[in-house]
Design a protein around this nucleic acid. Structure first.
Lengths: 337, 337
DNA sequence: CAAAATTGCTTAACCGGTTAAGTAACTTAA
DNA sequence: TTAAGTTACTTAACCGGTTAAGCAATTTTG
């Protein structure tokens, strides 16, 4: 797959690399290369299908035109959708995207960030795993362009595209309450993330708004690395012991698995237990019963993230931007409405 | 984010770049660098957190340790899952993954392949769009490492990880017939791909096996770029005009959308129309009704693809390998069993 | 008609690594 | 005692681009 180099062209045409480089970069006129020479170079390049080596180009220019995308898991529909938007927009401006999944491990995230920096990416879009202050602060200190998306660091100022997590969950819980549910459980994931904490806050807020006492027993933190067993136990406790009549799930994954468990145990949704998911997935509307969810604009989030990143890269703007997206209830049968 | 270079270390310690390079690559002993000097270098590198510039390294070594992943659409669950496996395995061997979506456009695919080659990726994993002989042949001719996955070129010998498309569909159609369905439609996508053609062949084969006449009117080719309207029309014709009592869908996407349309029109599945999907998605088992699908081992496909590619890259093996995965019916209610 | 300006290039350094080949100083063997 | 070996490095070229600075030949200008 060896293709010809600038040097090859230069030698073949008895010119210097410089001249060839200028012409290939369409700076021939500016650099006063004769029309004739330009044509010769272009013809030769075309004939031998010359393609500049981007590694060399990047090294020389100090710009790789690559952006790094770091997500917990690219196969999760949310992240995959974000990825698609990022790639789409990036491509238009001539950027390629390298991605890596962290598996929600801060250590891996740290390694991945370093590896991407070593590759000289021009910027990073990070769906950060559990708080990774050190790396984020390092990026900030180095004035390196990056955007945090989907999750937020409340204590560090950064570019961020995130959600109204709290308000979203509040609306979900209030919906169930308004539908007459009295004992509403909340199942979340045990990740030390501000966004996840905010969702719990949203749950508490709703109870407060509706004058319902907060009961620790109906709030379950499922462990990420053993979701299946952990969720099963949580569900069992909520349904069998606490006799909840409604559950709000902090993620679309939990909601789907939760519904699966409910059906497995022949618990009627929404009659016995009404449920709402924070976030949705394709097909939620086809579920039995169709799943009510706190919806948010994934596409817009992806778009906003790249726009913000590319703007930071290209204009080297220094002020951070916070874009917080509103959520919206998508009401289906599972909530008992 | 400027980090120090080999040269910086060399100057600081009054050594040559060469010596520093040897030590940083753990070739100090081999290259007879004194223990003392090695320690000085390592200490300095550590203290100033030296990280080699991978662009420079790649350029010099002629190996980028990047692999390119080209899919129709990264946000499709099938491709996203493949991507995850590829990334996971690649990472273990020190490779990063760049990806791009083609949107099923051969032109874009062609551009993307070139762009990845320009970036000097060490190999490509391609879920090829419509027949793109020129590029594939170019890669072959250049002896460039690549693997075609999920789709196959029957007329070009390549590394490939694909499916028993024909047999899969045959089993689906036969299942419906065995369940007493008489008029089975087939909805596929109008892509000029051997894999897609094989699925149609599978449909025909089943009819032949069961002594049922082939009827062109119940085979619909939905256009990729206007799936929604096109599928709607196809469904309407099959159900309202042709009065089919069963439909096999050639992709999980079509199946899901098809089911959505059936429900929208209050057509009872499977009583009035039984359906089977080729391929599944998360949540298919939660659908109303749960969707029967021709299942295949996505994870294994992803793993096999990377293994094959990395083997080709690292051992420069020249013989092509064909890995064809078997499919398996995952029977749920939608097929009327 | 000489000085100045323009034309059309080239030289050489650089980006940040890798590596074959060389060398000075010291040690060992014959 | 001197050639041969070893040690611990360095020099310089290379990967394939970019670019500031320079220069000879020609053209324009005063």
């Amino acid at each position: 797959m060896k293709s010809i180099s600038l040097k090859d062209i230069a030698i073949a045409l008895n010119l210097s690399k410089t001249t060839v480089s200028y012409v290939m970069n369409d700076r021939g006129d500016e650099k006063r290369v004769s029309k004739e020479t330009q044509d010769r170079i272009k013809a030769y390049a075309e004939a031998h299908s010359y393609k500049p080596n981007q590694l060399a180009r990047s090294l020389s220019l100090g710009k790789s035109n690559m952006i790094g995308l770091i997500v917990p898991n690219i196969s999760d529909s949310f992240f995959a959708q974000i990825a698609r938007r990022i790639e789409k927009k990036a491509e238009k401006l001539g950027y390629n995207v390298v991605f890596s999944s962290t598996g929600e491990s801060p250590e891996r995230e740290s390694k991945i960030i370093q590896s991407m920096l070593d590759r000289q990416v021009d910027g990073l879009i990070i769906v950060s795993s559990e708080k990774n202050h050190d790396d984020i602060l390092k990026l900030k200190k180095g004035n390196f362009p990056f955007v945090i998306v989907g999750r937020k660091y409340t204590d560090i100022e950064t570019n961020v595209v995130a959600l109204e997590d709290k308000e979203g969950v509040t609306s979900a819980v209030e919906l169930l309450i308004d539908n007459g549910r009295k004992h509403i459980g909340f199942i979340t994931i045990s990740l030390d993330l501000d966004s996840i904490k905010d969702r719990l806050k949203g749950y508490k807020e709703a109870l407060k708004n509706k004058d319902i006492a907060y009961n620790t027993n109906v709030v379950k933190h499922v462990t990420y690395n053993d979701v299946e067993a952990s969720l099963k136990e949580a569900m069992h406790e909520l349904v069998q012991q606490e006799k909840v009549d409604g559950i709000v799930f902090a993620t679309h994954y939990l909601a789907e698995e939760g519904l699966r468990l409910l059906k497995l145990n022949n618990i009627n949704v929404p009659e016995e237990v009404a449920i709402v998911s924070f976030g949705k997935d394709r097909g939620f509307d086809l579920f039995d019963p169709p799943l009510t969810s706190v919806d948010f604009p994934i596409i817009e989030m992806g778009d906003a993230a790249v726009d913000l990143l590319l703007d930071t890269i290209e204009n080297r703007t220094n002020n951070y931007k916070n874009i917080i997206m509103k959520t919206k209830l998508d009401i289906k049968q599972s909530c008992g409405s």
